[in-house]
Design a protein around this nucleic acid. Structure first.
Length: 366
DNA sequence: AAGCCGGGGAG
DNA sequence: CTCCCAGGCTT
């Protein structure tokens, strides 16, 4: 660990809170400290930018005014509202969590980080966020912003995605709260302040050090190491998958199935799929489709490359009319859904895009 | 401890 | 193109 100046360290937390009070964005979940809204926003913002999550937050609080309304909703309805936000296990865990709180806890959130963390979808970060913001508990959050700000300010080279890094940075974050010169420093404002600073000023690239309230004491700023911190271990490469979707059509209905295995998009709906580790030739693919779903008319609807964090998906989608339902049912799960029903189903972004292409096509009379 | 899970915006 | 975002769960 690199050395830093202790006199500048001492006022870090106080400067952060002072800056936060003058520069915080006006965000809907900051209107009050209601744990339901704080929880909802924190789960939505896991690995997600504020701008991306914001419209979803508005939709959710409007549709589910209380945790009881969320708890009594169907999972498909929750997933459909979450559609497009990604990491769908968050939505499934959010729903599970709401049921526990509504039915077992009389609708009241546990008031400590330790108790909160026992709930599904609430890990160390989210537990600390809710406990500090809604209940004033003196517990520090450690998210991507905190890693970056602390790494730069204190000049710490330990990789932020290593086990040691997690320990080092959470200890350091908690120290700022415990050893603050202001014993009444509001933990929620300190936590939101350091994250807000990371989001608005101490950004991953081209940070706005001229606007930073703690630049004078910042190790990286003073040593001109801003671009070198934080340190991060290299990640594994992406797996490549070739997904060949067969979209069976019957009148105004489309055959879809729910993804239930522990794979991408669990809980969402897509079409029968033939997967391969390598590219399939058009002729071979067509042959395969016909053998699995009957000898109907096959046509290419579209093909796209879809990037996920860990996977690169090469996707092609074939429409098929005149399918043999017996053959289809033997090879694939699922059932027929009318166009109206299809719109209501929660679907991955790519599937939603493909359906839009198809529906547009048929509305123009092919 | 390492791998897995989405989608989008910035540079 | 790469990186990363108010992380958590599974193996």
């Amino acid at each position: 660990m690199l050395k830093y100046h202790k006199e500048t360290q001492k006022n870090f937390s106080v400067r952060i809170v002072r800056w936060y009070r003058l520069n915080s964005r006006n965000l809907p979940w900051r209107e009050n400290n209601d744990p339901y809204r704080v929880w909802l926003s924190e789960v939505m913002l896991q690995q997600t930018r504020v701008e991306q999550g914001l419209p979803y937050f508005q939709k959710f609080v409007k549709k589910f005014e209380t945790i009881f309304k969320l708890a009594s909703a169907q999972e498909d309805v929750v997933l459909r509202l979450w559609q497009g936000l990604g990491y769908y296990s968050r939505a499934r865990n959010l729903h599970r969590c709401s049921k526990i709180i509504a039915t077992e806890l009389n609708g009241e959130f546990p008031a400590s980080a330790k108790a909160l963390q026992r709930l599904p979808g609430i890990g160390e970060y989210t537990a600390a966020a809710i406990a500090s913001i809604s209940f004033g508990e003196k517990v520090a959050v450690v998210d991507g912003n905190v890693f970056r700000v602390l790494s730069r300010y204190f000049g710490i080279e330990v990789p932020i995605n290593s086990s040691e890094g997690k320990k080092v940075f959470s200890t350091l974050a908690q120290q700022q709260l415990n050893e603050s010169p202001d014993p009444k420093l509001p933990p929620g404002e300190y936590n939101q302040g350091i994250m807000e600073l990371g989001a608005l000023v101490c950004t991953p690239r081209s940070p706005r050090c001229a606007d930073c309230p703690v630049s004078a004491g910042c190790f990286a700023y003073n040593k001109n190491l801003i671009e070198d911190l934080p340190v991060k271990l290299a990640k594994a490469g992406k797996r490549e998958r070739y997904l060949y979707y067969l979209m069976p059509i019957q009148g105004k209905s489309v055959w879809m199935k729910k993804r239930s295995q522990s794979d991408i998009w669990k809980g969402l709906y897509d079409f029968p799929c033939i997967e391969s580790d390598s590219e399939l030739k058009a002729a071979a693919l067509k042959q395969k489709c016909k053998s699995m779903a009957g000898h109907g008319e096959v046509a290419l609807l579209g093909s796209v490359t879809h990037l996920l964090t860990h996977q690169k998906l090469f996707i092609a989608c074939l429409t098929m009319t005149g399918v043999n339902e017996v053959s289809l049912k033997k090879n694939f799960e699922g059932k027929w859904y009318t166009q109206k029903e299809v719109v209501r189903l929660p679907k991955p972004k790519v599937i939603d895009d493909l359906l839009k292409i198809y529906f547009k096509k048929i509305s123009q009379g092919k």
